[in-house]
Simulated assay, not measured.
Amino acid sequence: MASFSLDDIRNAAEARYGSTDIELGDETVRLLNPLRLPKDTRTKLSQLQDDMGGEDADQEELLSEAIRLVAEHATAADKLLKAVGGDLAVLAEIFDRYGKGAQVGEASASAA
């Protein structure tokens, strides 16, 4: 029978469901995996993703709001968004990389 410490399990969870980190000068902005977010925030993120498919969707606004939801801190999200400067291509790339890093978590979160 295998035995694991809680620290072992935490380390495995961090390795599997860790953040997407974006270096911003001498700071790092952490975008948290959906499984690390409170349930109400996961629900809001899911709704934003659904809204992105709408014909009249303001992609810049929706992607910016998604970053605000998943950023570790509001000030970090603001700094990242200020650095991006409304560049929709950069916002889309950030969210794409975030989505690839969080893919396993999203599948698991929908089952929760």
Rank of each mutant, 00 (worst) to 15 (best):
A66H: 00
D58R: 05
D40M: 03
V84K: 02
G25A: 06
A66R: 06
I22E: 07
D78T: 07
E93R: 12
V70Y: 09
D21I: 02
R68S: 02
I67G: 08
L48S: 10
F95V: 14
Q59D: 05
G85D: 11
Y98D: 05
V70F: 12
L31H: 05
F95K: 01
P34L: 09
L45Q: 08
A15F: 10
L35S: 03
H73T: 07
Y17G: 07
L91T: 10
I22T: 05
K39L: 14
R42W: 08
A77I: 03
L81T: 02
A89R: 06
D51Y: 01
A66Q: 15
S46T: 14
L91D: 04
G53L: 00
S64R: 07
A77E: 07
R16A: 15
L69E: 06
R16G: 14
R42F: 09
L91W: 11
I22Q: 10
D96S: 15
I22P: 10
L31Q: 00
E61I: 12
R97L: 12
D96F: 15
S19N: 11
D21G: 07
D21S: 10
G86W: 08
Q47V: 14
L45F: 04
E61Y: 13
E93F: 14
R68P: 01
D50R: 14
L32I: 10
G85Q: 07
T20G: 01
Y98C: 01
A89K: 00
L31Y: 01
R30M: 13
K100F: 01
A74Y: 00
L91R: 02
D58I: 00
D40P: 08
L45H: 11
F95L: 04
G99V: 15
D96C: 11
V90Y: 04
R97S: 12
L80C: 15
A92K: 04
P38M: 03
F95S: 01
E93W: 10
R16E: 13
I94E: 02
G53R: 01
A15I: 05
Q47D: 06
K100S: 05
G99D: 09
L31R: 14
L63N: 03
D51C: 08
I94S: 01
D51F: 13
A66M: 00
R42G: 15
S19E: 05
E60W: 09
H73R: 09
Q47Y: 08
T41N: 09
R30L: 07
L32E: 10
P34W: 09
G25R: 13
K79C: 02
R30G: 02
A15P: 10
D96W: 14
L63D: 12
D50Q: 12
S19M: 06
D58Y: 00
L24D: 08
Q59I: 15
V29A: 00
S19A: 06
K44A: 13
G54D: 14
L62F: 09
E55P: 08
P38C: 14
L45W: 11
L88H: 02
G18Q: 11
Q49E: 15
L45P: 02
G25H: 01
A92H: 05
R16P: 04
E27F: 12
G25V: 14
L45T: 14
A74F: 03
A92D: 05
I67F: 02
D26N: 11
D51L: 09
A15Y: 13
G25W: 08
E55V: 04
R42E: 12
E14T: 15
D51N: 13
V84S: 05
L81F: 01
E65C: 00
N33E: 13
T41W: 03
K44S: 05
E23N: 09
L35G: 07
F95C: 07
S64E: 10
K100G: 03
A71L: 10
